[in-house]
Amino acid sequence: MAKKSKGIQHPGYEKAPMDRRDFLRRAALVGGIGGAASYLAMAPENWPLSMRDKTGLLSKPVHLPFQLRSFQVEKKAGSADIGVGTEGNPIEKLRRAIDAIGGIEHFIKPGDIVLVKPNVAFDRSPLLGATSNPELLEHLIRMLLVDCRAQEVRVADNPIESPPDCFEKSKIRLATEVGGGRVYLPDSNSFEMLNTPGAKLIENWWFFNRPFTNVDKVIGLAPVKDHNLCHASMGMKNWYGLLGGRRNQFHQDIHGIVSDLSIMIKPTFTIIDGTNVLMENGPTGGDPSNVRKGETVLAGTDPVALDAYAFEHLLQRGRDYPEYLFQAEAKGSGKLDWEGRVKEIRG
């Protein structure tokens, strides 16, 4: 920090004049960079490499939607659309119900990757009827892995309450791991934009897609629950658990969203778990007195008819069907009239 005196040149001062070549080189550099920068910034939007965004809309983030394929398989000749199992323990009921719609080997081929969607919406003990029966799930996974030689079974849901806790308290995680499957929990990366043509509310919506990677077959495992707003939460409403985003808005048109769900996903088949039917105070339940011990397990390939049958026989609410079933029928997801399409295997 030598003190500088006025008018006296610093002893270390050295003159370094620029020669012509140097000047030209620098001028070319400035011109080149400046020109390129001006092109990128100012060229019309449709020119190649132009970065211009005249309206400010181009820079809007884009979520490219994907479409979900149908997971349905062709109906086996001679089998019913709805299978009912009422005899034996829950596991036998499950097997009978599936056998009535064609048997599980008909639906799942060796080497398939199967995703099972139980309802794990709340951190409740399974006996309270708010979540799927873990015993059925465990056995279903065994059937898939052993009988059908499926390659992999995944279990996924996006619950309302904390996902790890819900899977833990509802014993679904334990059942999955004992059975040989793997639980996929939703985290911030799990959701992608799903395009469902024809849907009224969720034409483009966040969908819990990560576990669906390379999946061949999808099975719903839904409990039957009372629901104040849409009257009943059954097989179709179960798919609500695959939505992400601000899904609590959908209660403003609950029948619209539930019927949209029926076209959003076309499962291979759906199992309705009537072992613990939540008759009132749904869909959370919370008291054993709300639960009716059911004797029935249903399986079906027609989601509309299956829900209608469950509404009538498991919730025991007669034929005053919730409106979403009619809407789903109108959207072509199935036929509501289940009569003559039900088969029960006994003995």
């Binding site: 104040n228 403003q252 609950i254």
Partner: peptide, 22 residues
């Protein structure tokens, strides 16, 4: 509140209330 002020059905709050009776 949507049903109170705006004639729009909603009641998510009732649905999720965990106690029994709600």
């Amino acid at each position: 509140c949507l049903p109170h002020a705006m004639e729009i059905p909603c009641v998510v709050c009732e649905e999720v209330c965990p106690v029994s009776p709600k």
